[in-house]
Amino acid sequence: MINKYYYLIPFFIYFFSYLLLFSRQKNLYRTFIVLIYSGFIIQSFILLLLINRYSIYHGISIASIIFFNSWILMLVIIIFSLLYKAKYVLIYVSPLAYLTLFISYFAPAADFRTALMVNSSLLVTHILLILLGDSLFALAFMISLIYIFQERRVKLKKNLKIFDKNREGDKKGYKKYGWDEVFYLGKGYNLELLDNMNYQCLKIGFPTLTAGLAIGIYLSNSLFGSMTTVKPIEVISLITWLIYAILLHERISRGLRGKRAAIFSIAGFLMIVSTLALSLYLFPQIHGFLH
């Protein structure tokens, strides 16, 4: 078994890279990016080792699922930051991935291979889809928070000073570089892009979540032999799914966007967190797939 201490290697790399940002020196943003990518490569390598050693079809520990969740989240963040050229996604959303990584270190490492009574490949697909959907919604959640803060600033016209390109240095004596444009002056945030990213997360995340839930219900059915057995996880999942379904419907049919869409995204993600917290972490037995 891979020692869980390995999980801490990418965690500390991420953590250190984030600390670097606060020193606000020249070229540190580049170092930050290099460190984040290196952390991600190391995390991917550890994940490969995990898959190779235990073979994903023979069962997975809760800790490794959370580790995997952190990896998917990081992957989604990197893809979005590159695709939309939005540095702030990497800066503001990646701490969520570090947190998940940190949690994975403390999560139970018990191999519940024997506890599983269901088709392994379907279970893996179920986990993969749900985690991918959740990661996208986590990203949407953070983007929605940024949106709400930024929208408030635009509405109240606060801290919206236009950045002066001719400015060199300031009273504190350090030089202003590109990074400051992102972090301190809000350059790069624009409401339309934030809303577009939010919508994109929903467009990919919703079908993924739906498919994941459908497989979950099928697995639950085959495990208990009946569709009628209603478990708390299913109720919460259904509510979450409904929130996102309404949001997608409103977006498509009535053009819902902006602040309301952001609030919907936040509510949906909070429901996901409560689902996970209630079912998987706090009371693993009620998830239904474990005896």
Binding site: V154, K157, D164, K259, R260
Partner: peptide, 22 residues
Amino acid sequence: ISNVYLFDIDDIGKMVENNLDV
């Protein structure tokens, strides 16, 4: 109104003041 952003002459003035070192 949601998704409407209005700036008047004073708002614009406040935004550009103090940032023009040159």
